[in-house]
Design a protein around this nucleic acid. Structure first.
Lengths: 342, 342
DNA sequence: CTACGCTTTTGCAGCGCTGCAAAACACAGC
DNA sequence: GCTGTGTTTTGCAGCGCTGCAAAAGCGTAG
């Protein structure tokens, strides 16, 4: 492998100092047209490309941000990732990606003090279960934006929709359809299940607001928000003596799993059981039936998260940690409204 | 921001040279137990973390590989990404991710000579349409593994399943069910649609093999392999005077879109139209009906691709470009076999 | 002609680490 | 004690770039 072309080589050919070449390459002001052209020509002649590594070292930054999510094969995160990459690229940053598999140890390591120093300049983090301890141990110098449930403590930004309000809205939709035995699938009544708990709270609020009793036995927990768990939980519900006539699922995947079970039993959606999901992933728009859902504005979330992170990275004094509420809306589809005429 | 702890700081505290500290940190042989312990203690006392950037610059490598795919919200790529990350991490590498949106310009730029030099040590590339020109312009020094259709020219490795054989198998499955008007959705008869063309070839071979005529008018092209395109193409087919009784879709997403249209028209799957997909994404395992599909061994593909890439990165003289055939199998589900008894 | 302020260019140090080769050390054999 | 061999430690240069501050150039005013 022959040696690569460096700034100095270009400088020599152009008859200027290497610092001037650097100025030209980086488009700094205060370079006369004459020198600029001369340098440009030399750059092209030698086929010079800046060495990113060296630049990063000299600047003490990596030009990369990390996106840390629990699972990547979850459509919600995949869709989010897409928008994050786009936003990061617009800001001149590359995206390093990591998946934690929801492992708290791994999650903690990612923001721990000094961890992987300088590999990335900041982190967009969607934790599954980040406890107080992990936040306490975190490197305070690492710019951080958290997605999802956990509220900001003032040292990082938090971007997410209002889970309680959205869940109340979803549940109200079911109650307003006249359903009386509404189940909820996805509760996680332990430390790391904050997002789930907020949804359960909204679920309860809706019942209160409509003057209906909550059927406590119809609130089912699931370890993850995926299809198999949704399918299993639904099977459990249908095995009961008194099955529900509607289900609020804490993710679209859970809803798809639940629908799968319902149809497999020969029951109809929504006639026998109405189903509503959460996340508005593409799958739910083409499934049979299509899935009514809470649609968070993912583009808004991704763009805002990256914007805030880059701002944080660029600030000498860290800006205050903001609580950013993303817009969301209820999208009614076949799984609650039935099939429209064709 | 106070200065970070460096090797030299540790060296001073431990009373050794900074080179020795480096040796200890990197676990080199030939360090006496005594020194090792002393250094370790100093490292911990100061909370030293190596500066990855500096190490990379000194070593002339970045410790990162790039995964370049056309779309990230496609479940197939999302699932692949997951395995790639896992394999890369096992080899001590981080994964930088980029999505090309299928833009040939962008795809080309990624492997072009000198592009983003040193940002990554190698690329796992799943091109949508990579023409000869792009391959000719590529940086020969950049270790490259290509996924998908394009055969190796000997300078890079290629990992993929045997598309022709798999497609023949899929089509034969439909023919063997007694279907006589078998359609194909997903053909791309232009330069960058090589994968699609291989599948069409398999489609034809199956007909020949079974002594059946190919219905040329039932081969439909689609710009992308996604749900909307599948739904549209199916609508087109059903509007015909003589609609098909089976469809071979070039991806599971296309199949899901097609099924959506079929059911929306009040027809049944598979009774009226049998549908087979390609990729075996999770969606197809929980959809209604579940989707019969060609299942490539994604774990094998990801692991093999990363292994080969790391080997390539580590070799002084580039190893020969291999053609690696991943295993695949036909998975029969409801969309062709009908619903099993429950 | 000199002084002054502004623009443009330069030189150098250094980011924090590793490669390399030499130096120091340790031990065995004569 | 001296030589030879192998192990452990060290010093230094340098990866290729940018920050900083000084130097040089340049036009205008006094």
């Amino acid at each position: 492998m022959r040696r690569e072309v460096t700034l100095r080589d270009v400088a020599e050919l152009a008859g200027v100092s290497s610092r001037t070449v650097s100025n030209v390459v980086n488009g700094y002001a205060n370079v006369t047209e004459r020198t600029r052209v001369r340098v440009q020509r030399a750059v092209e002649e030698l086929g010079y490309r800046p060495n990113v590594l060296a630049r990063n070292l000299a600047q003490g930054r990596s030009g990369q941000i990390a996106l840390v999510v629990p699972y990547l094969d979850t459509p919600y995160f995949a869709e989010l990732l897409q928008s994050v990459i786009r936003a990061a690229r617009a800001g001149g940053y590359n995206v390093l990606i990591d998946q934690t598999d929801g492992d708290p140890e791994h999650e903690r390591g990612f923001i721990a003090h000094g961890s992987r120093r300088l590999l990335f300049d900041g982190v967009v983090f969607s934790p599954l279960g980040l406890d107080q301890q992990a936040l306490a141990d975190r490197d305070p110098a690492l710019p951080l934006v958290i997605l999802g449930e956990r509220a900001s403590d003032g040292t990082f930004d938090h971007v997410g929709i209002d889970d309680v309000a959205a869940s109340r809205q979803a549940t109200e939709h079911l109650l307003d359809l006249g359903r009386r035995r509404v189940a909820a699938i996805g509760d996680q009544p332990y430390a790391t299940g904050e997002a789930a708990q907020l949804r359960t709270r909204g679920f309860r609020q809706a019942h209160e607001g409509r003057g209906r009793p909550v059927h406590e036995d119809l609130i089912i927990g699931t370890p993850r928000f995926n299809r198999p768990d949704g399918a299993r939980a639904m099977a459990d519900l249908l095995d009961r003596e008194n099955p529900p006539d509607a289900v609020f699922c804490y993710s679209d995947l859970v809803a798809l799993g639940a629908i799968h079970t319902i149809l497999a039993r020969g029951l109809r959606v929504p006639e026998d059981v109405a189903v509503i999901g959460y996340d508005d992933i593409e799958d739910g728009r083409y499934s049979n039936p299509t899935v009514t859902t809470i649609s968070p504005d993912k583009e808004w979330i991704a763009t805002t998260a990256v914007e805030r992170l880059l701002l944080r990275i660029g600030s000498a004094t860290p800006p205050p940690g903001l609580e950013l509420r993303a817009p969301h809306r209820l999208i009614v589809r076949e799984s609650t409204a039935g099939r429209a005429g064709y």
